[in-house]
Every structure is written in structure tokens, then in C-alpha cells.
């Protein structure tokens, strides 16, 4: 029983991190109809911002570990937002009217650029992520250890997702995002500046990826420039599973993938973890490509 509970908590914790990353994929897909394959690498940059800034920030603000943790996360979110917007401006915007495949291949190029540029700048060897969240066992009984890291990950992700939900469904900017995602031309006719909405979407997506990176690195503290590849792919699977373009779907998909992975690791073998996630991707693409919450979308002519 305790072991089951343990797996569930671990799964939700990992799943909410996947969900945060998946939201970026799904929002950018919603607005621009392409998969931003560099998203996982923006996540990686977030981890490195945390790695380099955390010692300075904690020295600067002194004692309060929670306060400095929040500052580190906000800084990572800010820098990744700038990175996301810059990538969009220089790599994707010039290709706006080209076939989607062109943009997709460019995204893979940007991804490789960040991965290997990262190796050049940060060095290829793994680094130990500093302790931002004090690591201690909140619950520690027979077969059940709930670390503060997991709780912080779940709570932070939940708060960020609620804020996102508010922005998307209760603000004018959010309504404009949904309008643009439905029809660029009609949105432009309303006086909406499409480019600023696209930039805003990249800000939201990239800052969520950065927050996810800080949470992820607190749980798995070994970071390196290629660390974004797998969480990025898993979150992509989560977004497709939930229904790409649907933000509730991304959150749900993230949780499902996170839970599945921890259950496979816990009850089967860690060896199968990735295989099963990719298996899910193949199955969903074969049998319900629109995902759990996605609607069938007829190709517009």
C-alpha cells in the first residue's frame, strides 16, 4: 500500500514537471501549428541559469532559502523567455509563410545549436545542481518517503498552471491568444498585433519550461547540455497524448506519462521506461492522433 502511494506521489511530481514543459509545446503549436523541437533545450538553458545564478543569489539575499529559490526560478523564467522570443524572431518568424516542414526542420536545427553550443560553453560533463529546495523527508515511515522536493514540484507546478489558466481564459491577452490560434487573419482584422501575441506565447511557454527545469534539477540534480532531450521528448509525447493544442490536455498528458513512467520503473524495470513512453506515442498516433482531449480538426482549405 505504502509502496503504491510512494509511486503515485513520485509519478505526480514527475508528471507535473512534464506537464509544465508540455504546455509550452501545446501553446506554441496552438498559435503557429508546428512543434517547437527546441523547447526541451530551452528547458536545459533554464537549468543552467539556475546552476550559475543560485550560489550568487543565495549569497545576495542571505538566509532565506525559500526566497532565494523563488528568485532563482524567476530569473531562469526571465532569461528563458528572452531566449524563446529571440529564437522565434530570428529562426521562425522569417519562415512564417513557408511550409510547416521548413519551420520544423529549423526547430531541429535550433535544438542542435543549443545542445552543442551548450556543450561548448558549459562543457559536456555533468554538473551538480545546487540545492535550491532544502532536501528533507516530509514523511518518512515504512516504505514511504515523501521528499520536500516532490511536494515543492507538485505545488509550484499547480500554482503555475492555475496562473496560466487564468491568463488564457480570463484576460484580454488570453482571449487574443485563443483568437489568434483559431484564425490569424480574423484576429489581425480585430486589431490584434499577431507578432506580439506570438512573442507573448513564447514568453509563457519558455518561462514554464524554465520553472520546470528548476524543479526537475532539484529532483534529479545532475545537469548537462543534453539533459533537455529526454524530458523534452516525454513532454512532447504528453502534449500529443492529451491532444496537441489543448492546454488541459497537456496537463493531463503530463500526469499520465509521469505516472506511467514511475509505475514502470517501480514495478517493472527502469529499462522499459522510455520504451513504454514512446510506445504510447506510437499507439496514440495510430489510433487517436487527435489525443485524449483534442478535437478532430478538418484540414482547412
Amino acid at each position: 500500500m505504502n509502496q503504491l502511494l510512494q509511486q503515485i506521489i513520485n509519478g505526480i511530481s514527475l508528471g507535473s514537471i512534464y506537464a509544465l514543459i508540455a504546455l509550452g509545446y501545446t501553446m506554441i503549436y496552438g498559435i503557429l501549428r508546428f512543434i517547437n523541437f527546441a523547447h526541451g533545450d530551452v528547458f536545459m538553458i533554464g537549468a543552467f541559469v539556475g546552476f550559475y545564478s543560485a550560489p550568487h543569489i543565495s549569497k545576495l539575499v542571505g538566509g532565506s532559502i525559500i526566497f532565494s529559490g523563488i528568485l532563482v526560478m524567476l530569473l531562469a523564467m526571465l532569461i528563458c523567455s528572452l531566449l524563446g522570443v529571440t529564437i522565434e524572431k530570428f529562426a521562425y518568424k522569417p519562415l512564417r509563410s513557408r511550409p510547416k516542414l521548413t519551420v520544423l526542420i529549423t526547430a531541429i536545427g535550433v535544438s542542435l545549436f543549443l545542445e552543442y553550443g551548450g556543450q561548448l560553453i558549459f562543457g559536456p560533463d555533468p554538473k551538480l545542481f545546487p540545492t535550491i529546495v532544502p532536501s528533507m523527508a516530509v514523511v518518512d515511515t515504512q516504505n514511504l518517503v515523501i521528499g520536500s522536493n516532490s511536494i515543492v514540484a507538485i505545488v509550484t507546478a499547480a500554482i503555475l498552471m492555475l496562473i496560466l489558466r487564468f491568463i488564457v481564459f480570463n484576460t484580454k491577452m488570453g482571449a487574443a491568444m485563443r483568437a489568434v490560434s483559431y484564425n490569424h487573419q480574423a484576429a489581425a482584422l480585430m486589431g490584434i498585433n499577431i507578432n506580439s501575441i506570438i512573442s507573448f506565447t513564447f514568453v509563457l511557454g519558455s518561462s514554464l519550461a524554465a520553472a520546470a527545469a528548476i524543479l526537475y534539477s532539484s529532483v534529479y540534480p545532475s545537469i548537462n547540455p543534453l539533459m533537455g532531450i529526454f524530458p523534452g521528448l516525454k513532454a512532447f509525447i504528453a502534449a500529443v497524448l492529451g491532444g496537441i493544442g489543448n492546454i488541459y490536455g497537456a496537463a493531463l498528458g503530463g500526469l499520465i506519462i509521469g505516472l506511467t513512467e514511475t509505475f514502470v520503473t517501480g514495478y517493472l524495470s527502469p529499462t522499459y521506461r522510455d520504451a513504454i513512453s514512446f510506445g504510447i506515442l506510437i499507439l496514440i498516433l495510430l489510433f487517436k492522433p487527435s489525443g485524449i482531449m483534442g478535437k478532430f480538426e478538418a484540414e482547412k482549405v
Partner: peptide, 22 residues
């Protein structure tokens, strides 16, 4: 515009509010 281009995913109120976006 031609074909009306109503935002199908936005409510009537939100559609109107988009008209007043600026």
C-alpha cells in the same frame, strides 16, 4: 470578412470584446 470568420472557440461576448480589442 467573407465567410464571417467568427472565432468558433470564443463565446459571443468574447468575440465582441475582440472587436473592441484596441
Amino acid at each position: 470578412p467573407e465567410g464571417r470568420m467568427i472565432f468558433a472557440n470564443l463565446t459571443t461576448r468574447e468575440n465582441l470584446e475582440m472587436g473592441a480589442y484596441l
